[in-house]
Simulated scan of single mutants.
Amino acid sequence: MEEWIIKAGEAGRRLDIFFMERKGWNRSFFMKALRTKKIKVNGKKEEPSYRLQEGDLLRSFVLEEKKPALPVDILYEDENIIAVNKPQGLLSLDVTGRTKDTLLDRVNALLKTRGEPPAFPVHRIDFNTGGILLLAKNEAARNVLDRMIRERKIEKSYLCVVEGAMPGKKGRLEGQLFKDARKNRVYVLDHPVKGSKTAVTEYEVKAFRQGLSLVECRLLTGRTHQIRCQMAHAGHPLLGDDKYGSKEWNRGKRERRQLLCSYKTTFAFGKEAGILSYLSGKTIRLSHVSFVEKYFKGTVI
Rank of each mutant, 00 (worst) to 15 (best):
F178N: 11
K37H: 12
E255L: 07
K179G: 07
T96H: 14
K264D: 08
R35K: 15
A181G: 04
T221C: 13
R59M: 10
E77S: 10
A136C: 01
T99W: 13
K271C: 01
L239K: 05
L63H: 03
C261A: 11
L103S: 01
K197Q: 15
I149D: 03
G97K: 03
L145N: 00
L260F: 12
E2N: 04
E77M: 10
G115C: 01
T224G: 09
V95D: 09
R254E: 12
A119T: 01
A69P: 12
I154D: 15
A268C: 15
R14K: 14
L177D: 12
D101G: 04
P48A: 08
F19H: 07
F296V: 06
V84Q: 09
V188P: 12
L135S: 05
L91G: 09
K206C: 12
N85V: 03
R98M: 02
L135N: 02
G12A: 02
K247G: 11
N108T: 00
V162W: 02
R147A: 02
V289L: 13
I149K: 03
T283K: 09
K38V: 07
L104R: 01
E155Y: 07
G12R: 00
K194N: 14
E174D: 05
Q210C: 11
A181F: 05
P118T: 01
K112V: 00
G97H: 05
L63F: 04
R98G: 09
L259P: 07
L214I: 06
R223E: 11
N26Y: 04
C261K: 12
R172P: 06
H123T: 06
I284F: 09
V200R: 11
K297H: 09
M166A: 05
R257T: 02
V95A: 04
K297Y: 10
E2F: 05
F178V: 12
Y76N: 00
H233F: 15
N80Y: 08
L220W: 09
K271Q: 14
E204M: 08
L93T: 04
E77N: 07
K197P: 08
V188I: 07
V72R: 06
A232H: 04
P71V: 11
H288R: 13
R150Q: 14
T224M: 15
E79A: 13
N80M: 03
D146Q: 08
K37V: 02
K112A: 15
P167K: 03
E10K: 02
K294S: 05
S290Y: 05
C217D: 10
K137I: 06
L276H: 06
K197V: 08
E248S: 15
Y158I: 06
H236N: 08
P71N: 15
E65F: 03
L173N: 02
W4Q: 00
K137F: 02
C217S: 11
K253G: 01
K206W: 15
L70P: 11
E46Q: 11
L219R: 14
L239W: 12
K169C: 01
A234Q: 13
S28T: 06
K67R: 14
A8N: 08
D78M: 03
Q258Y: 03
E151V: 07
H288K: 15
V62D: 03
I17P: 00
T96Y: 09
E3A: 04
K7T: 15
R124L: 10
V144T: 10
R147G: 07
L177Y: 12
H225W: 11
K23A: 04
Y244P: 12
